[in-house]
Design a protein around this nucleic acid. Structure first.
Lengths: 337, 337
DNA sequence: GGCCAGTATGTTTACGTAAACATATAAGTA
DNA sequence: TACTTATATGTTTACGTAAACATACTGGCC
């Protein structure tokens, strides 16, 4: 019995099967001509000694890997879980695997992360949003990887973007609220406003209010991460002010749900005393006693299509450059405005 | 100007800096003696030509990688998002990166996935639960990677387990419900019962009922994935039967929340007409008008500790074998029983 | 019979890195 | 002075694989 101090290689399989290493490689990858008899012998030998291919060596030699780098701002938000789920499903179908990291909405961390992920020589990379530093852009250009930018389409993509117009979502929400006769607004966001997409929604919202002559009394940005409790706290604070708004636009459903909690607990009527609107259309909203007015987003689909794009074999890169796929959104009129 | 058809290597940096490739390697990895002057020259040269290390080559040569394989049943459940978040945080701190895949609660997919992930020669692997096929066990043993098993501690871990006792959670829930004077129960689960941990909870629940002489009228297992709508549908069905139970134990909070929705919509009082209990203690429960009785689980912490264990440098493997870290749980008595 | 195309296999080499070993200078020490 | 020690660098090699190229055998066709 041969003692294996290291993991078996193709050479070990080759010796066992009485063929050359290259023949083992051909059997494993299904390339080139192999007789049925040899194929069987090699398969049996590989199974017997428990051969597992070494993807590092494979990637090094063939200069390509079935890896796709995924850069997300956070995992602490179910939005990006849906996105990651879509990406993973698409990649898995194509035999690729995601390697990911989170930036926590920081540009420096994005630069660092992109650089690190590119050291794995992935065949593609998924970025969140369209705003990236020159450092990141240069690194990606030098690496020559395919890029999919998700969530946002308000801007010029490096290669291809799968998302929706964030400013249009802000606009649509404002229009809907204005149509209810609301005139005096407040905005509530979180994370020190580092979420650029939330910023774009706010901008669309703000512009639409201005055009209608309505007032945005205050823009409240918490330094804390988004959560229901934070939304509740912010709502209590906003409603305690002398110039109380008629409506609050939140940067997402979590904060808005916190608003609903505050109102329910304090006998504040929605929308009579205060109108509320959120963003994302998360599934748990269905279970709330009050239907939140919000904008439903195609989260899974963005991830899925981005994943499919990156795992599409040998596509014509030139054709895709600067293209945008608008996956749209859906304003859901609830009971809060 | 030199034309780069391929990505720059250490040799390119070395040429530019007027040193040998090995010196570049030493500067990059901070190993061995390097004069300040040369270090500066190499750094500058690397920055100028945009050198990015090739982790495939590094891993191949050094026979180790900063990768950790992560095997989860699904991403479509915020439980595993929390877990993944904990794992990612711990690994990132230690300079490691997760490569993951999902099994969809299938043993065959787990076997396939583990095999595939091991081909990246990770330094560790995270598995969900303690039940794994002989194929997976053999593959892991042959690979010699460290293993962390998460979520469950009812059994014998391969190396180390970070979780909680699922059957104890089922027992605790049953005990609490029995203490409310409830005697006639139904169980509602999903996913064809493929979730082994839900099975263990049910078993603990069932046993405790039996010991108390109470009745488990029916065990309802939906073939569909868990969701609020599925829970609502199942609840409606269970309550429409002639032998209506006094209480329903759900396999998780999503299903239980669906039960709450059904009750609220149909004027069914909780707990008078029907008592409900869930599992997980997800954050959105706080926003519901009725406080669900549930068991809060240390999801993030399980992932975090598993990640820390796997990224701990050069630990004494022998010491950890078969060890279990019980992170406990917390029964939250709500208004539903 | 000679030649081509298709089939089946082997040999050599290179991918980019780090381990192992070798070399060289300067500074301290017996 | 000779001899160690610390510091600073270079050379050779191997990690496991697949591309490129070479070889050999088969059967069909003119």
């Amino acid at each position: 019995m041969k003692i294996m101090n290291t993991r078996p290689t193709m050479d070990d399989v080759a010796e066992k099967a009485g063929v050359s290493q290259m023949t083992v490689s051909r059997v494993m990858n299904g390339k080139g001509y192999i007789s049925e008899e040899v194929r069987g012998r090699v398969r049996a030998a590989a199974a017997e000694i428990g051969y597992v291919q070494n993807r590092l060596a494979r990637g090094l030699r063939s200069e390509k890997t079935p890896l796709v780098a995924v850069v997300l701002p956070t995992l602490g938000n179910s939005v990006f879980n849906d996105v990651l789920s879509g990406i993973t499903d698409a990649l898995t179908q194509a035999g690729c695997r995601p390697v990911f990291g989170v930036t926590e909405y920081s540009e420096e961390k994005e630069d660092e992360l992109v650089r690190d992920l590119l050291s794995w020589r992935p065949s593609g990379i998924v970025l969140t949003g369209l705003e990236h530093s020159d450092i990141t852009r240069a690194a990606i250009a030098a690496a020559g990887v395919r890029v999919a930018e998700i969530m946002d389409i308000d801007g010029t993509p490096i290669s291809m973007a799968f998302g929706m117009s964030q400013s249009a979502a802000g606009h649509a929400t404002a229009k809907h609220m204005l149509a209810q006769g609301l005139r005096r607004f407040a905005y509530a966001g979180s994370h020190s406003g580092r979420d650029l997409r939330a910023g774009k929604r706010l901008e669309g919202f703000r512009r639409t209010l201005r055009e209608a002559g309505a007032t945005l009394l205050s823009e409240n940005i918490s330094p804390n991460p988004s959560s229901m409790m934070e939304g509740r706290r912010m709502t209590a604070e906003i409603l305690s002010r002398p110039d109380k708004p008629e409506a609050i636009y939140y940067s997402n459903d979590d904060l808005a749900t916190g608003g609903i909690m505050h109102c329910l607990s304090n006998g504040v009527r929605m929308p009579e005393d205060i109108a509320l609107a959120g963003f994302n259309g998360l599934p748990f909203l269905e279970a709330l006693p009050v239907g939140l007015t919000t904008v439903e987003t195609p989260r899974y689909e963005m991830g899925k299509q981005a994943g499919q794009f990156l795992s599409r074999p040998d596509p014509d890169l030139a054709d895709d450059t600067g293209k945008v796929i608008d996956l749209g959104f859906n304003l859901i009129a609830g009971q809060t405005c």
